[in-house]
Write a protein that binds this DNA or RNA. Structure first.
Lengths: 338, 338
DNA sequence: CTGAAAGCGCTAACAC
DNA sequence: GTGTTAGCGCTTTCAG
């Protein structure tokens, strides 16, 4: 019970492989009789062409790959929905690929590029520390969407990126708290270093404090060790318990939601007893009670600009560029004036 | 600036394609000198083998594909995390593929099977109405994880499934509300028909009511038209406004969370003024305030049983089977006694 | 309009 | 150990 090949279909329909190939690829130069016959044989035998063989022989495509690091990330899911139609509108096909947190997106990209003869790549989530040699294997244009190479050493002319400024955004979030009169502001982060988004946002927290002349109280920093809600919850409980902040800045919405829950479980009311602010603006945090106040990433623009830059690169109408987008305060009900 | 092939690497390292192929595939019968030389050439030229060519020539694999319909679904993300290690433990590699809501998972499966010579397939999310002819093109064993072919016409011996009984689970949810004294129970669903999970769960709602001798009040049924939170929110607002239920049964956690928010925005307290119960048990609803009461799907068991059945099928040690798993009441704080 | 034949890049006998 | 070679299934000239 092996699989049928194009050869079998040719034999079964009394024609040649080239004719079958033609109907498969919807070429016009096939007689209607032949086309019908072939189609019939294909249908009744459930023939499915072998894509590997096809990809092997096709040396070009109009495919742009989306390589995504972070399966469950709802923010990425939202970006995809915006990216796809834009890509199609520009005449490209999109091919989505998820990689595991432990995998290297650049290796995945190089393989994909070769396999599918990609025209370009959009990365959703990846390392912040690429080196020139890391990207040497990638011969097509690519853009990092929603993150930058903050800790790496790439020449700006060799890649593109569209993202928010994480340090500044975190600063703004903390400043919002400051403006509302808060002084004991906790930070709920993944870790202080590691060259990740957590480090950048933590640095923003630090600079906001220091610019306001507030000395850092180490007990106010809660490291969850991951971006998981459960870890964030535990870290928030510990943080609240030991440091009694009047407000918490969480580096992500998910962690902010976990902090709100921690507060509730400790009989603190948000925002009366504890204010919470975060960064991201995912759909879910809009349905919290109270709605989470957050600095929302401009998802739409992030996605659209990424596509446009990439298209420009492919069509040689543009050059590698780096766009920093503004976040907007999505005022919920989780922050109050003290 | 085209890509290097195995032939180029052979030439550049002064050896033959077979030797290069051998080091690529980590065969032992290569002299250490040759291996080093080849590795060096590969590294310095950023050579990446063409997977299409490899897949084409390899006529077997130990790959099991996970075909997922529903990108953003957090429940599926959780299942994947459980499935992967179990698959590896059984000696299989996993290959994850997401398809769009508009795509047909069976077509995708057939193509993948052919392309990668799959050993088996696990579907996460799919249509409920396969016909025998639909699956004819799939020659390897497959299991539907977390859904069943409730509206289709497949012989049970031709496929496997592991899922909860949606009708009974919905019934239980509504019965829980009934036991707590509720009589005006609203249903927040996607739509009443359409052969989807929404229909099944709605039928469970209906049967619970009728068995309790409660006449159906059509105004108590809120159809959101989708599973989106925004649509569910709007439907909940309408439902609450027109029918004044004391409790709402939502067919999914996400929709339940939206209902809680709708209540809050209408100045109703959950659970004091309105109780809410749902089905799924996703992580997020655990962080709602109050925690959403829900009938949790046994994610772990769903995933594990799926893998085990598939492995049994592949190794000819088992037969196609259909497992119905029990949900468990995850009592949160969103339901109260009236 | 149709068919024969030449590869696409790679793996795996098979010979040496 | 190593090289030669025959395909894997498909698309695409190139003749007819």
């Amino acid at each position: 019970m092996s699989h049928l090949t194009i050869k079998d279909i040719a034999r079964l329909s009394g024609t040649s492989v080239s004719t079958v190939s033609r109907v498969l690829n919807e070429h016009v130069d096939v007689s209607e009789t032949a086309r019908q016959k072939v189609l019939e044989v294909i249908g009744s035998n459930h023939y499915v062409p072998n894509n590997s063989a096809r990809n092997l022989v096709i040396r070009k495509s109009n495919v742009i790959a989306l390589i995504i690091r972070g399966r469950g990330n709802p923010f990425f899911a939202r970006l995809i929905k915006i990216i796809e139609p834009r890509l199609n509108k520009s005449g490209y096909d999109m091919s989505v690929h998820y990689i595991d947190t432990s995998d290297d997106e650049l290796k995945a990209a190089a393989m994909l590029e070769r396999e599918k003869r990609l025209k370009g790549i959009i990365f959703l989530g990846g390392r912040f520390n690429y080196l020139a040699d890391d990207i040497a294997a990638i011969k097509v244009p690519f853009v990092c969407c929603s993150y930058t190479n903050a800790f790496g050493a790439l020449e700006e002319g060799n890649y593109s990126s569209v993202a928010i400024d994480d340090r500044i955004t975190a600063r703004r979030a903390v400043e919002h708290l400051l403006q509302k009169g808060h002084r004991r502001i906790g930070a709920l982060i993944e870790r202080k270093d590691g060259g990740s988004i957590s480090q950048l946002r933590y640095e923003g927290y630090l600079s906001a404090l220091s610019d306001s002349g507030i000395a850092l109280d180490a007990s106010l920093v809660g490291c969850a060790g991951s971006f998981e809600m459960s870890d964030a919850y535990a870290a928030a409980v510990a943080l609240i318990g030991r440091a009694r902040p009047t407000a918490i800045f969480a580096i992500s919405d998910l962690m902010g939601v976990a902090a709100m829950k921690a507060a509730a479980d400790m009989k603190l009311r948000v925002p009366d007893d504890l204010s919470v602010i975060a960064i991201d603006g995912i759909e879910f945090s809009n349905y919290c009670i109270p709605t989470l106040t957050t600095l929302a990433q401009p998802a739409e623009e992030l996605a659209l600009r990424s596509v446009d830059i990439l298209a420009g690169l492919i069509e040689k109408k543009g050059v590698n560029s780096h766009v920093l987008l503004e976040t907007s305060l999505r005022a919920g009900g989780s922050v109050r004036q003290v």
